[in-house]
Simulated assay, not measured.
Amino acid sequence: MQTSTALGEFLRNRRARLRPEDTGLTPYPGRRRVPGLRREELALLAGVSVTYYTRLEQGHSGNASDGVLDALARALRLTPDERAHLYDLARPARTGRAPQHRPARVRPATKQLIDAMPQVPAVVLDRGNDVLAWNALGHALFAGHLDPHSPDRPADRPNLTRLLFLDPHTRELHTRWEEDARTAVAALRLAVGRHPEDRRLAHLVGELAIQSPEFAALWARHPVRDCAVGSKSLHHPLVGPLDLDFESLPLSDGTTHRLLLYSAAPATPSAAALTLLAGTLTPGPPAPGAASTTAQRVRSER
């Protein structure tokens, strides 16, 4: 994805969200051909020339100063995440040729760590949300219908964003699917801005834009948000409703991998359901009727 194109798209999208009246400006007379602020109005608010701003929006000026970018961020009323994204797009990392892709591997010690937390759903992700590893409860919570060993095979690795938009089971799992979809697209936008050289990210965006009209519509809005903490509302096929909190922790191993952990508030139905789900993860194949028995136990506790 060309960062100059993405920068222009982002700036046009954000100035379209603001009206002159919102910023204290008197609207230019005459019919407005585009929604939101005109280039002239944004340039005035940011204290730069119209010519310079136009070149920046068209991708012809790659040396914008901190002062200019900060002024644009203030004029456009960007959030801290959006401001960081503006810097990423205006100052793309110069790495020369695109690096050769080698399948990511999770460190054995990291896999050992998450396996040592059997009561905590844990997933290790790369920057594009490919699953590099999960513990048994993380697998059971999000993708029990998939092969638990699929993260070990780079060609078959699940991708949480792809599953969210293209997998019917995952869609049924997420009670607030629309909200989770917006969050996923916003996080992917941030990752693409930070790593414009990553061809796998570009391929993922292209694939989802073609196969999911909902993804394409959300992507066109250019949402940006760092989703390091939050909550999810799920309806698991075995244990029913779950309201969980999550935290995404970067791994200090020189990679961009992160550890995604989920928990439920103590002494809640969700905590009981999560405990019951963990209790189903016994060695060997589940006994006949285990799913229905587990569901009955959850209902009785609630």
Rank of each mutant, 00 (worst) to 15 (best):
K232C: 02
P154D: 02
S252E: 15
K232G: 06
G289A: 01
L259W: 01
P283S: 05
P29T: 10
A64K: 05
A267Y: 00
S61A: 15
V120G: 12
L125E: 07
T294A: 15
L89E: 01
L163I: 05
L249D: 12
G206N: 09
E207P: 05
L249R: 14
T255C: 14
A209G: 04
G206H: 00
D226A: 06
D88K: 04
L7D: 04
K111W: 06
P288K: 07
G254T: 10
D126S: 14
W219E: 04
V68C: 08
G24C: 03
P213V: 04
V34M: 11
N159V: 03
F165G: 04
P118A: 08
T293P: 00
R32F: 00
R19T: 01
R176H: 11
W177K: 08
A202V: 07
L137N: 03
A191K: 11
T175I: 06
A109I: 09
P35E: 02
E197L: 04
L204K: 07
A136P: 08
S61Q: 14
R91L: 02
L261N: 05
A84Y: 01
V48A: 09
P92A: 06
P196Y: 04
H101M: 06
R17I: 00
R94S: 13
G62F: 00
P29V: 03
L56T: 11
S270R: 09
M117K: 14
V48S: 08
R182Q: 08
P288S: 07
P223L: 07
P20L: 02
H169E: 09
N13Q: 15
L89T: 02
H139K: 06
A287C: 03
G30D: 05
E40G: 12
P80Y: 01
A273W: 02
E247G: 12
A264G: 09
A220H: 10
M1C: 10
P237W: 05
R19D: 03
R32K: 06
D115N: 15
R194H: 12
W177Y: 07
P103R: 12
P80T: 01
A16V: 03
V123D: 12
L190C: 03
R127N: 14
Y52R: 14
